[in-house]
Design a protein around this nucleic acid. Structure first.
Lengths: 213, 213
DNA sequence: TTTGGATTATTAACGTTGTTAAGTAAATTT
DNA sequence: AAATTTACTTAACAACGTTAATAATCCAAA
């Protein structure tokens, strides 16, 4: 069945063509400009052809959502080289902020927009694989921090979700233009968020009281 | 000019009619079902009439955004009765979570969706009045906490934004269905978020080391 | 009171959007 | 060579936000 193989390969190629066009539109012109018709125009097919490779528009966004997580994983590639778990935790946070800053559209799709989650729900899927994997990596570091006394003992999941919520809060407020009203100079956004993260890590570090005498 | 007064009153009445219909659709059927045509249908006018009272759809959302902040302010009405600033801070956080949980659509409009902010930007408006007011109330409490030694001295704005980011992170992840994958039982969402908040407040409290000995 | 200009509302339409149904042309199998 | 599957397109639907043109209503001045 060598011919069927070739056919499937072609099918995947066009899928890739569609995704590449979507990514281009997505990154260069933003979410709302990713339309089936413009995608079709870019790949020089008719709009309906897109539906032969993706069930609907949300399936395309779901695919972009996954690609976003791949991009983010690359961002965190050399994280394991940091031996001190608290430093690693801190660096994870910084990377998270950096990634969001450099890829706001992907960040939205991964953590803010409803579309990709709706898609999961309608498939009856309870799991959110990429998110799960990301949180598990975070949790592992949190546990290591607790074991070595950098964080006080507590439910690792709750603490992990809390840490995630903190950086996500900063990032999503920034991306959705709620922070810029308080940090008017754009180039100060990331530094201020990193300062926040600093403050946060300092505060959750076990035994680091810094109480005023 | 008594007649002009009456006219303006009528104008306001229809504006209110439109807003009420929008709110109804908004709360009962969600953001994406608030369409000009459905609003018009509800108030029994033609769709174009809406444009005599609102420049465009975003202006309606901007109005709902403001109403959301009013609702939230009501939520925080009896907050000043709490004298201990740290307890008050904690309660502010709990109220914030509670409000978001009970009014997810409004919360989205206030803190997640881009539309109301785009509207501000196109009006050349640098200020985000309701958000500003809210943060200032938070900041005042933070400052009081610092003065009384409940929080360690630091830039009050940075600390305020950090606290806000934390609860917003929880809330927006929850509303956008990113938390439910880790907290599968819906009724546990709010309790877990409040547990997170507890953990957070405990950690930022000055002098509360809780280090393992 | 009647005329005339503003106000208020409507109908019709434009240009989008996602998506489906029906039809065509090419490739593959029989 | 005929039949069937595959790949793709054209045409269309329903819904959207929004504008232009038009009709009806109201109020003030002649």
């Amino acid at each position: 069945m060598g011919i069927q193989e070739r056919k499937e390969k072609q099918k995947l190629e066009i899928r890739k063509l569609i995704l590449d066009a979507s990514m281009k539109l997505f990154v260069e012109e933003g979410f709302e400009n990713v339309t089936i018709r413009r995608i079709a125009e870019l790949i020089e097919y008719s709009p309906t052809t897109v539906y032969l490779y993706f069930k609907d528009k949300d399936e395309i966004f779901a695919a972009l959502h996954d690609i976003g997580f791949q991009k983010m994983a690359e961002f965190n590639k050399d994280l394991d080289t940091i031996r001190n778990p608290l430093l690693r935790l801190h660096k994870m946070g910084e990377n998270y902020l950096q990634f969001g800053m450099e890829n706001p559209e992907y960040y939205s799709l991964m953590f803010i927009d409803t579309e990709p989650m709706d898609k999961l729900a309608e498939e009856g899927c309870e799991e959110w694989r990429p998110g799960d994997a990301a949180i598990n990596r975070l949790k592992a570091t949190v546990i290591e921090c607790m074991e070595k006394g950098y964080l006080q003992q507590d439910d690792p999941l709750v603490v992990s979700l809390s840490i995630w919520s903190f950086v996500h809060g900063l990032m999503s407020l920034s991306i959705r233009c709620r922070l810029e009203k308080f940090i008017p100079h754009k180039e100060m956004l990331l530094p201020t968020m990193k300062a926040s993260l600093n403050w946060f890590v300092n505060n959750i570090e076990a035994g680091n009281t810094s109480a005023k005498e």
